[in-house]
Computed example of a mutant assay.
Amino acid sequence: MTITIKDVAKLANVAPSTVSRVIANNPRISKATAQKVKKAMEQLGYHPNLNARNLASQSTQTIGLVMPSSGDVVFQNPFFPTVLQGISEGAHEKQYAMHITTGKTDKEILDAVTRMVQGKSVDGVILLNSKVEDQVISYLKGREFPFVLIGKPYKDVEEITHVDNDNFRAMKEATEYLIQHGHSQIAFIGGSLELTVTVERLLGFERALRNAKIPLKNEYIIHEEFLREGGQEAVRELMSLEERPTALVVADDFMALGVLNMLDELGIKVPEDISIVSFNNVLLAEMSKPPLTSVDINIFDLGYQASKSLIQMIENSKEPTKRIIIAHKLVERLSCAEPIK
């Protein structure tokens, strides 16, 4: 026998329209009534027909996720599973599904996003990174389609809802931590300068050196992919210099793992010969040898708040533009020491 909304309403002693409102997460329904209806649904084994509900409301009840163009970064770097977990948690709370898209090139990604939007397969979009020149942002803005950015927009900051850390401040503090340990020969290993996060962190690094009156050396600034191999390449380059750095700030823990591997190959000890501060504070930072001092940027919360903000925009077209800054903190471990005199 098929269970209907009327059966649920009868058991919960409410009107069928109240059951419909509970299914639609209507905020006007009290928590007590919602709990009573959900209990009746569970008792009867009733599952709402979301397809019918979505057709009636012209909603897909789905959010689109736009992944970076480099497949290697997405599938290897622990940042992405963690941020996706946060997004998923926020979506699940509101019974939204997720539709993930990516591509090998920026054009492929833009084409995929265009198909999502024009095909009406999603109600809104979350972008997982911010580029200096971002065609996807321009397209979504032009279409006035709901979207949230994880990261700081390079331009139109006040017009785009985004969830981010204060990357300038976080990198400045990480660099100052090394300066306080007595280091003045500090190198920066970051991602692509096409990414806003790299630009922000590089500016924070430069400010910390300038404040300490430490000269900035261009040969100490290296840009690579957020991959273990990227960290290895950066170390090869830095360790071939006549005047090697005594400390490194690395923009990503996964890159830092490559840094540690290469330093070990070269017989350079951490922290005795060189100190390292990294970013993201994923599990491998704690498990590496030695355990890495790393800036915890609360990756899960970045995803959760992005998901929550997007759904608010979808369900209320008058939702104001927001800038949500997620707190960071430096987690001290065993990868830093004073330089050898």
Rank of each mutant, 00 (worst) to 15 (best):
T2M: 12
D123Y: 06
D273C: 03
T293G: 03
M1N: 15
S88V: 02
S130F: 04
G303W: 00
E332L: 02
Q35D: 15
E265G: 07
L110G: 06
R228W: 08
L11I: 14
T196V: 15
I274M: 15
D134F: 03
V250M: 04
S88M: 08
G151I: 02
E229W: 14
E332V: 13
R323H: 15
I311V: 11
E173K: 11
G71A: 06
S192Y: 00
E338T: 12
P27D: 05
L241M: 10
N25V: 00
S70Y: 11
V8E: 06
L193F: 11
E332D: 13
Y177L: 00
T175R: 07
P153L: 00
T246G: 07
L149F: 03
R21Q: 01
V136G: 08
V250H: 01
T105Y: 07
S138E: 15
R207H: 05
E219N: 12
Q85R: 14
K213R: 14
T18G: 00
D7P: 00
P153Y: 00
T4E: 04
L127M: 13
P78S: 03
N316Y: 09
N261A: 14
L128Y: 08
K38L: 05
M262W: 02
F75D: 12
S88Q: 08
N316M: 10
L238H: 02
E243W: 10
A97F: 13
K289G: 12
Q180T: 13
I109Y: 00
V249I: 09
K6T: 11
E133L: 01
L238W: 06
I324N: 10
M287D: 14
Q312W: 08
F279H: 08
G191D: 01
G151M: 01
L193K: 13
S240I: 05
A234I: 03
G231D: 09
Y96C: 08
F75T: 13
V277C: 10
I186A: 02
Y177H: 07
L11A: 10
V122T: 10
N77I: 04
Y46R: 01
F254P: 00
K155R: 15
M239Q: 13
I100P: 00
N218K: 08
S184L: 00
G64E: 02
F279A: 01
L260I: 04
